[in-house]
Nucleic acid binder design. Structure first.
Length: 445
RNA sequence: GGCCCCAUCGACUAGCGGUUAGGUCAUAGCCCUCUCAAGGCUACAGCACGGGUUCGAUUCCCGUUGGGGUCGCCA
């Protein structure tokens, strides 16, 4: 590539960052990083009505969360600013003047329209190949509007102007823009500029493949991952796998591994259905390998989001509690259900499990477990484990027979962290209290 | 409907003329195990159809069907 690689992500501030948009941003970012190029963020806020500061923040926070840092754009500056279309009026005026002088524009009820040359246009696309569009019929390809009667600009025009002004070398965007490409090529022609390399990437479809993913669909918003207990690396990894693959059967790849492998000719042409299950699976993989301090930090956030109050617990208690939950959940948001018992004495006991395990036969065993725990010199994992195993042997039962009722009494559930570890974290006092509280649930006869 | 793109297990994909069509998610079973996960093993499951080209098509060409996109003074 002779020209420096300059790519851009050009979202409209709608207050919503779509996964499809995030994936487009990701591919642009990867391409820039792969070629030592520049990744530009440009905010296409020509539609003043729905343009708010909060909506722009949604874009920033979504990209930042995914680790997609931009080299030029809002907040970081650059030589081709401003990076908000709403602030680039003077530039657009200049280009309109140029088009006007070339006789390419005409007035239509106050709106400005671009007169199509009515020829065949070939779009050269790095992923789709060369595609010819016959633009000769105005019925199927009406002249595009460039400016509304109120003076505001239309997407096609400002998009092309900005790409020219910002020296964008490759336009990587969703395939839904493919049919816009010939219009844009006409504009480049009228402006006397060579078009950039286009790369229309496949769309992300709903889970059933019926249509583009839209606002209503689960997982369509980046914000939903931030709030939903996902790790950004996992979501980013999953997004890489939609329309691209390393071709060597790897699924879990760090972004550093993806960068050198990423290129436009490896991008698929087929739209991909979105599978939140697989994304969650990957999230579990990442969660499992997270350093403990980061897992604890993210776990705290997730618990707090779920409404679990952590303020009354020491940092070491919360850390130890969360450590026993490591590798056990796929989503951080599952933590409150999985380990919530650590932070509240007020949990219900699973009724079905109570019926099965709080039996008359188990009552004396439960009592024996309590005595064994009471008698322990020190209440730590090895001591607890040794004592309970010894007791099981002594009573001639398998250890589960002892552990099920114990787990039920101390956590309310039959599923949870390692029994010995959770008892140690809970501490003797709390453990015995919970056992005492459960005692009356056993049948007396 | 016009135009454009696409077509391998339910999903994401590998394959770029000769393969027992591979991997991953999901599903089922087994093993491991203090539960739940994780992990290991196994199973299930795919080249849309019809013509060509070729000694030979999942792979190349054409058509059909199917799916998606797009036809704004939205972006």
């Amino acid at each position: 590539m002779s020209n420096p690689v300059r790519v851009r992500f050009a979202p409209s501030p709608t207050g919503f960052l779509h996964v499809g948009g995030a994936r487009t941003a990701l591919f642009n970012w990867l391409f820039a990083r792969r070629h030592g190029g520049t990744f530009i963020l440009r905010v296409e806020d020509t539609d003043a009505a729905r343009n708010t500061a909060e909506a722009v923040q949604v874009i920033y926070s979504g990209l930042r969360w995914l680790g997609l840092d931009w080299d030029e754009g809002p907040l970081v500056g650059g030589n081709c600013g401003p990076y908000f279309q709403s602030e680039r009026n003077a530039i657009y005026e200049r280009y309109v003047e140029q088009l006007h002088a070339g006789g390419h524009l005409y007035d239509d009820g106050g709106a400005l329209r671009f007169r199509s040359p009515r020829k065949k246009v070939t779009v050269h696309d790095a992923v789709c190949g060369s595609i010819e569009f016959d633009m000769s019929d105005p019925a199927t390809h009406p002249d595009m509007t460039i400016r509304r009667p109120d003076g505001s600009w239309i997407f096609h025009f400002v998009n092309v102007v900005d790409d020219i002004e910002m020296k964008v070398s490759h336009v990587i965007r969703g395939e839904d823009h493919l049919s816009n490409a010939p219009k844009h090529v006409e504009l480049y022609g009228a402006l006397g500029v060579l078009p950039p390399v286009f790369a229309h990437i496949p769309l992300i479809l709903k889970k059933d493949g019926k249509g583009k993913m839209s606002k209503r669909d689960e997982g369509s918003s980046v914000a939903s991952y931030i709030a939903g207990g996902y790790v950004p690396e996992a979501v980013r990894n999953y997004l890489c796998l939609l329309g691209w693959s390393p071709k060597d059967n790897r699924e879990k790849l760090s972004i550093e591994e993806v960068i050198p492998l990423f290129d436009l000719d490896r991008i698929n042409r087929k739209n991909a259905a979105f599978d939140l299950e697989k994304c969650a699976w990957l999230n579990g993989e990442y969660l499992r390998e997270l350093p403990e301090d980061r897992f604890v930090a993210l776990g705290r956030e997730a618990l707090t989001r779920s409404g679990v109050s952590l303020s009354q617990f020491s940092e070491s208690y919360v850390g130890a509690a969360l450590a026993t939950c490591r590798g056990k959940v796929r989503l951080l948001n599952e933590l409150s259900a999985y380990g919530g018992f650590y932070f509240s004495d007020d949990f219900p006991l699973n009724a079905e499990a109570v019926a099965k395990h709080f039996t008359a036969e188990n009552a004396p065993r439960f009592q024996a477990v309590r005595e064994s725990l009471t008698a322990l010199a020190s209440f730590d994992v090895p001591s607890i484990e040794t004592a309970l195993k010894a007791l099981a042997a002594q009573l001639g039962v398998k250890i589960v027979v002892l552990l099920h009722p114990l787990r039920l009494a101390t956590t309310g559930s039959l599923a949870g962290p390692s029994m010995y570890h959770l008892l140690e974290v809970l501490g003797r006092e709390k453990s015995l209290d919970r056992m005492d509280r459960a005692m009356p649930r056993f049948p007396t006869a």
